[in-house]
Simulated assay, not measured.
Amino acid sequence: MREWYQTHLGLKTNDYGAVFEWRQGADSLKKGFTQWSPFGEKTKYFEPSTKDFMVNYRVADLEALVDELKKEGVTITDKIEVADYGKFVHIMDIEGNKIELWEPNDVAYEKLGKEMGSATTK
């Protein structure tokens, strides 16, 4: 799948998919990144959702958002995971779609990409 998108649409792919680089609207000197990651058709990664996709949203303050979502009765499927390049947690929407929330550290994310030898799609 990654190879098809690289060949036919020019995406600069890596082992995880492709990274799209963009500039933040509030400060055009700051970069932002969006990750596109195709999974095999038999993946279990999206469970407990029965759907064959997952949406990832960038958020500003993951802990505060998770606290609010809990108060609102939203299903949180795991604990917040912390990595150098950001914090992650998964929730379920009302239609059973798994959603990944990501509070990014774009500076560390870009550094990791460079260390992996990955290029971004701009």
Results as ranks from 00 to 15, higher is better:
E47K: 12
D84S: 08
S37D: 15
K31Q: 15
K79C: 00
F33R: 05
P38I: 15
V59N: 05
R23F: 10
D93L: 10
V74N: 04
W22H: 13
Q35L: 12
K31D: 11
W36Y: 09
M54E: 12
G17S: 13
L69W: 04
D78R: 01
K79D: 01
A18I: 07
I76A: 02
I94D: 13
A60V: 14
F53P: 08
A83K: 01
Y85K: 01
G25Y: 10
T43C: 11
V59W: 07
Y85R: 05
Y57C: 03
K70Y: 06
K111Q: 09
V66Y: 08
K70W: 03
A18P: 10
Y85W: 09
K30Y: 12
G73V: 09
I91M: 11
E41W: 05
E110F: 10
A18W: 04
F88S: 00
L65Q: 07
D84Y: 01
I76L: 04
K79V: 02
V55N: 05
D52E: 14
S37Y: 12
L69S: 03
I76D: 01
V59F: 12
D106P: 10
N56A: 02
V74W: 02
K30C: 14
Y57G: 00
G17A: 07
Y45D: 04
A108Q: 11
A18D: 09
E72Q: 07
V82T: 09
K31C: 14
G86E: 01
F46H: 14
D61P: 03
F53A: 08
E103D: 01
E103M: 09
L62G: 02
N105V: 09
A18C: 08
M54Q: 15
D61F: 04
E63I: 11
K71L: 06
V74E: 01
E41L: 15
K87F: 10
E95G: 13
T34F: 14
K44N: 13
R23T: 15
P48F: 12
M92P: 03
T43A: 12
A108R: 10
L69V: 02
D27A: 09
A18G: 13
E41M: 14
D67E: 11
T50M: 12
F53T: 12
